[in-house]
Nucleic acid binder design. Structure first.
Lengths: 135, 135
DNA sequence: TACCGGTACCTAGCGTTACGTTGTACCGGT
DNA sequence: ACCGGTACAACGTAACGCTAGGTACCGGTA
């Protein structure tokens, strides 16, 4: 299910996790669980751990080992300055992309008449008419 | 530039192109140019062609060869029923993901005090308190 | 004529990413 | 002694976008 989701998560999941860590430090298992009951039901555990290793190696997070009552010690990740910068970049990219896509959706809504007649104003008309020529 | 964008486009670019094709049939070069001056400045031509081959093979589009005055004949792609279904799925997935992410942004805004105090209402509190235990 | 740039398409190999699976290690309850 | 939940790690796979090429046709300029 949701192969679509799988591909869409690429590039966004990192930002999502960074945003979660910005709110408060957390460890892998915790993050996985949180994502799961926030709707990402079929998110694999291994995916989150791999991602955490990645952002750790890039220096976006600080790590602290905290002994746990049950199981091995927890690796608690907290966002540092570099991570916050990365998160800002993520938001910038996201904002741009979401803007473009919502723009397309507005055009779609206009065509099908879903009722969502807002969000956009007049950016729709593009001056370039690349269909010139024909015959 | 924008490696962030590169990764974020994975999974979304297909939907973007499908949405463009829903508006009206188009050919590769045209789509690339359109995306370029809509903000995706450093989008590679090869990326679009590869994507078009993919969606053609999956049967989301119908293809028609149209002779061009300059250069080789254009392959004009138009969205068919299967493509429209795929596009619907894309919107569903996108809506969900965008919802989750905007939710995170709202939390971020609240923390930094950007002034964007809306969008969200009460979905923020999560019942699960997975930080139990500690010591 | 010879060259260059714009149009239009296609391909091969690469790096990144999320997934599935498996394995390790620790603990409490039955 | 065993099982299940907690917590982390490593392996290989598939999908995607990018880089970096290539082919082909056309008009303008030197």
């Amino acid at each position: 299910m949701a192969n679509q989701m799988t591909e869409m998560l690429k590039g966004t999941l990192e930002g999502i996790v960074l945003a979660i860590l910005e709110a408060r430090p957390a460890y892998g298992y915790e993050i996985t669980a949180q994502l799961r009951d926030e709707g990402f039901a079929d998110l694999a555990e291994g995916t989150v751990y791999a991602l955490l290793v990645r952002i750790e190696q890039r220096g976006f997070v600080d790590v602290e080992k905290v002994p746990s009552e049950k199981g091995p010690p927890r690796k608690v990740y907290s966002l540092n300055a570099a991570g916050r910068a990365q998160l800002d970049e993520f938001w910038a990219t996201w904002t741009f992309l979401a803007g473009r896509i919502e723009h397309l959706r507005a055009a779609h809504a206009g065509r099908t008449g879903t009722g969502t007649t807002s969000t956009d104003s007049g950016t729709t008309q593009r001056t370039t008419d690349r269909t010139e020529g024909d015959d």
